Simulated assay, not measured.
Amino acid sequence: MEWTVPIAVVLSLVLVFLVAGGGRRSDADQLARRLAVVERKLDLIMAHLDIREPEPEAPGAVLQELLAGRKIQAIKAYREATGVGLREAKDAVELLARQRGLG
Rank of each mutant, 00 (worst) to 15 (best):
G23W: 08
L13S: 14
V62K: 01
V14Y: 12
Q64E: 13
G21F: 05
T82Y: 07
V38F: 13
V5A: 12
A81D: 12
G69W: 00
V38C: 13
V62E: 01
A68Q: 04
R87S: 15
V19H: 05
F17V: 05
E39W: 06
R24N: 07
I72K: 06
V19C: 10
L95I: 12
G69C: 14
L95K: 15
P59W: 01
A8N: 09
A32N: 12
L31V: 00
G60D: 09
L13C: 15
A61W: 02
E57Q: 10
T4Y: 10
S26T: 11
S26F: 11
R34A: 07
R33K: 14
T4Q: 15
M1P: 14
D43V: 09
D29Q: 00
D43W: 03
R52T: 07
L63T: 14
L66V: 00
E55D: 14
G101A: 02
E53R: 02
T82A: 10
E53M: 04
D91M: 04
A61I: 06
A20G: 08
P54R: 09
G22Y: 07
A47C: 09
R34S: 12
L86Y: 15
G85T: 00
L42G: 12
A89M: 10
A92H: 07
D50M: 01
A8M: 09
G85Y: 01
S12M: 13
A28N: 02
A47W: 03
G60R: 04
L11C: 13
V37D: 14
V9G: 03
R52V: 04
P59D: 03
I72S: 15
V14D: 13
A81Q: 08
R70G: 03
L49K: 04
E94G: 06
R98I: 05
P56R: 04
E88F: 05
G85L: 03
R79D: 15
I45P: 03
E88A: 11
G23Q: 13
I45D: 07
P56V: 08
G103E: 02
E94W: 04
G23D: 10
R25M: 07
L31K: 01
A92W: 01
A77P: 14
L11T: 09
L18Q: 10
P54Y: 12
E94M: 00
E80Q: 13
V14R: 06
E2S: 14
A36P: 13
A68F: 02
A20H: 07
V5M: 08
S12T: 15
G60I: 00
D50R: 01
F17W: 06
Q99S: 15
V84Y: 14
G101H: 06
G69F: 03
K71W: 06
E65Y: 05
A81N: 11
F17P: 02
A32K: 05
R100Q: 12
R100K: 11
G85I: 00
L44G: 12
A77C: 10
E57P: 10
M1K: 15
A47I: 07
Q73R: 06
I7V: 10
A92D: 11
S26W: 13
K41I: 07
D91H: 02
K76T: 15
V38T: 12
A32M: 07
E53C: 02
P54W: 08
V93N: 01
A28F: 06
